[in-house]
Simulated assay, not measured.
Amino acid sequence: MTSASTRQEARAKFLREQGWHDARIEPLTPDASFRSYARLRRAGDGCMLMDAPPAHEDLKAYLDITAHLRALGLRVADTLGTDLEAGFALIEDMGDDTFTRLLDAGHDAEPLYLLATDVLKALHAHPKAVEVDVPPYDMAALLREAELFVDWFVPAFRGSEASKTEKQRYMDAWQGALKDVARVRSALVLRDYHVDNLMITGGTEDIRHCGLLDYQDALLGSPAYDLVSLVEDARRDVPSGLRAAVMERYTAGMQDNEVTALERDMALLGAQRHAKVAGIFVRLSKRDGKPIYLGHIPRVLRLLSSALKTPELAGVRESIEAMVPDYESARF
């Protein structure tokens, strides 16, 4: 029996136990993770099936963070049924109105982005947001992610792996650049905060109508991370005027020195994220057979190059340019 058929049988068993065995199953387009989703429909009713294979995904983490975000007053899908051991959950179907779909259909971008900004402000201001048992976004985690660039992007682009000396120089440069921001624990970082993972479940004026997705890998770290993820999106160009509106909204009431520190941390964590994403997109193509992500590489590298102009990142920039001097030209 193949693993696929075994998984299918486990899914059928779960649906029988939950009373959804008679539903019509409509698979959704897979994302970059090992999770998959399907819409379950039957007369007058519907929900979503989350398939999170235990060997690759932590369903408990999703459920725990979901409960925590709900307690903070944020909009997340209701949990309708679970089997932790098998890695299945039934969750509320919040509809199809992701920010991405709305933007692609011509919806005005600014109200959506400002709503997303208001959600972040509320999350970052909530005194109990960090009262949750998740790991810190510490130096080890940040370096492990930055390493993906040198392990996957560099050899794919230049045709040879980085030498031990090249890699060490690169990692040392990151450690020096991130030494301060890696100690910050003031925010619950959702980590993939961008328009693909945000939904409208009502109007665009109330944060309770902004549905959140894909937050199960949340960590405690800097508020700058999710903010830069929103305005420096790997999959979508964000016009400078829209970014400025987001920053004006987020920094309202902040002191000048606080804004300066936030912008510095956004540059540092933005660069780290772009390096990580460049590596992940190559890995998704080469290891996981998902080449579609390679189309975003030029944007990611432009964002990386821009962030690397930050003085604190001079060492990182030099180490990258020494390994792949024309990395911005990469096309796969």
Rank of each mutant, 00 (worst) to 15 (best):
P136Y: 03
D138L: 11
D138M: 10
A140W: 07
L143W: 10
L143Q: 14
R144F: 13
R144K: 15
E145I: 10
A146R: 06
F149G: 03
F149E: 07
V150H: 12
D151F: 00
W152T: 10
F153T: 08
V154F: 07
V154E: 11
V154C: 10
P155F: 09
F157I: 03
R158W: 12
S160T: 15
S160D: 14
E161T: 15
A162F: 11
A162R: 04
A162M: 09
A162V: 11
K164A: 15
K164N: 10
E166R: 08
E166S: 06
R169S: 08
Y170V: 13
M171V: 14
D172H: 07
A173G: 13
A173S: 15
A173H: 09
W174Q: 13
Q175H: 06
A177F: 04
L178T: 10
L178C: 13
D180L: 11
A182I: 10
R183C: 05
R183T: 15
V184R: 04
V184S: 00
R185H: 05
R185P: 03
R185Y: 09
R185K: 13
S186F: 01
A187Q: 04
A187I: 06
L188R: 06
H194C: 07
D196L: 01
D196A: 03
N197T: 06
L198E: 04
L198Y: 00
M199S: 01
M199F: 08
M199D: 03
I200G: 00
T201V: 15
G202V: 09
G202A: 12
T204G: 04
E205W: 02
H209T: 09
H209L: 10
C210D: 01
G211Q: 09
G211I: 12
L212S: 06
L213W: 03
D214W: 09
Y215K: 01
D217M: 05
A218T: 00
L219M: 12
L220S: 03
L220C: 02
G221S: 01
G221E: 05
S222N: 13
S222R: 02
Y225C: 04
Y225T: 00
D226H: 04
L227S: 05
V228S: 00
S229I: 08
L230T: 06
D233T: 12
A234Y: 02
R235C: 01
R235S: 01
P239Y: 01
S240N: 01
S240Q: 14
G241M: 02
L242V: 02
R243M: 08
V246H: 05
M247R: 12
R249D: 01
R249N: 08
Y250D: 05
T251N: 07
T251G: 06
T251H: 10
A252S: 14
A252I: 03
G253F: 09
G253R: 07
G253C: 08
M254L: 13
D256W: 00
N257Q: 14
E258M: 04
V259F: 01
T260L: 13
E263F: 06
E263G: 02
R264A: 14
R264K: 14
D265H: 11
A267E: 07
L269N: 04
L269D: 11
A271Q: 11
A271P: 11
